[in-house]
Simulated assay, not measured.
Amino acid sequence: MEITEQDGLTVATVSRDEAEDGAWRARAAELDLVRLGEPGTEDAVLHRLGFTARPKWVNWVAPLGGSPDEWLASLGGTERRNVRLAHRFVAAEGMRLEVHQGLTERQLDAFLPVYDEQIAGMPRGRNFARKHRDRLLEGADGLLSVFVHADGGADSPLVAGSLWQWRPAESVLQLRFSAAAADARSGRVMRAAYAAAFDRARAGGLGYASLGNDPSLFGHVVQPGLFTFKSRLGFRALPSEVLNPELAGEFQDRFLSLRALADPSLVVAWGELRGRAPGWPAAADGPSPDLLVLTGDGRAQGLPSTGFRRTRVLAL
């Protein structure tokens, strides 16, 4: 058994024999989760030992629909209202929303400080956009950029932006990075920016949008609010390997504590997709994964569960 600290989580990695023997129990008070280090353990064994198999990463996908109205009609009533309010807010505030095919160095350098500030406000945020600045510019021709400025002035400050990968072979527009100033997020500006990106993708003949890849545990590095936002926009979480094979892989975890996690935390589990996830684009309309809700009181009211085969609640 090996005990390590991973971004604030205390993890005990055990072998199959150690899991069977409960070797971790003597140290349980100091652990947040136990991870089975032998991949591919049978589902029946995992269930008996209290472990959950989950993809390491999930990708959020949704059809764009044939028109903006068709996409809006696919959303719940509250989210349709939020999108409409977002457009009204941008117009009422005199903001300038721009959509560009490609990305210039000047545009990226205006975006990165907004992204820096957003990441700095996250307990365990990681600044991948800043890290991959040169790579983004090298692949700029394959990007779609959406920027929202505070007003119509030529030097108006940027309040929100998003960078998207144009993937014609898969008929997908995939989000790479997005950021907004705190007051812009509260004003729903990102919804307006996303809708503009979807419009451009639809006009360009793409059939699907992706809101990018996230760890399958929401409540640690990424938070449940992000899960809720993406889910309510009509997106389904699928194993990232469907669109990004380099992100394949799984964890087999037994969760013990919420000390280092949000309450509730959300785990996208394989469910029936384990070992037989369909390829793209069949996965877009294929089986859904399972959702595991980790909570201190055993309740999960108000959490979105659309897009999942089943939802299970685990009280810790």
Score class of each variant (00 low, 15 high):
Met1Ile: 03
Gln6Gly: 04
Thr13Val: 13
Ser15Ile: 04
Asp17Pro: 00
Ala19Gln: 06
Ala28Cys: 01
Glu30Gly: 07
Asp43Phe: 02
Ala44His: 11
Ala44Ser: 14
Gly50Met: 04
Lys56Glu: 14
Asn59Phe: 00
Ala62Asn: 07
Gly66Ser: 12
Arg80Gln: 14
Val83Leu: 14
Ala86His: 05
His87Gly: 10
Leu97Cys: 05
Thr104Gly: 10
Glu105Pro: 01
Asp109Met: 01
Leu112Ile: 08
Tyr115Asn: 11
Gln118Met: 15
Ile119Gln: 10
Gly121Trp: 07
Met122Pro: 07
Pro123Phe: 06
Gly125Cys: 04
Ala129Arg: 00
Glu138Lys: 13
Ala140Asp: 11
Phe147Asp: 05
Val148Tyr: 04
His149Arg: 13
Asp151Glu: 03
Gly153Leu: 00
Ala154Val: 06
Val159Ala: 05
Leu163Cys: 05
Trp166Leu: 10
Val172Ser: 13
Gln174Tyr: 00
Leu175Glu: 10
Ala179Ile: 08
Ala184Cys: 02
Arg191Val: 03
Ala195Thr: 04
Ala195Ser: 15
Phe198Ser: 01
Gly204Arg: 05
Gly207Lys: 11
Ala209Trp: 08
Asp214Cys: 11
Phe218Gln: 10
His220Asp: 06
Val221Cys: 10
Leu238Glu: 03
Pro239Phe: 09
Asn244Arg: 15
Ala248Trp: 12
Gly249His: 12
Glu250His: 08
Glu250Gln: 13
Arg254His: 13
Arg254Cys: 14
Phe255Cys: 06
Asp263Asn: 08
Val268Cys: 08
Gly271Phe: 12
Glu272Ala: 15
Pro278Met: 14
Gly279Cys: 09
Ser288Lys: 08
Val293Lys: 03
Leu294Asn: 07
Thr295Met: 07
Asp297Phe: 08
Gly302Ser: 14
Thr306Gly: 15
Arg310Val: 09
Leu314Phe: 07
Leu316Gly: 03
Leu316Pro: 04
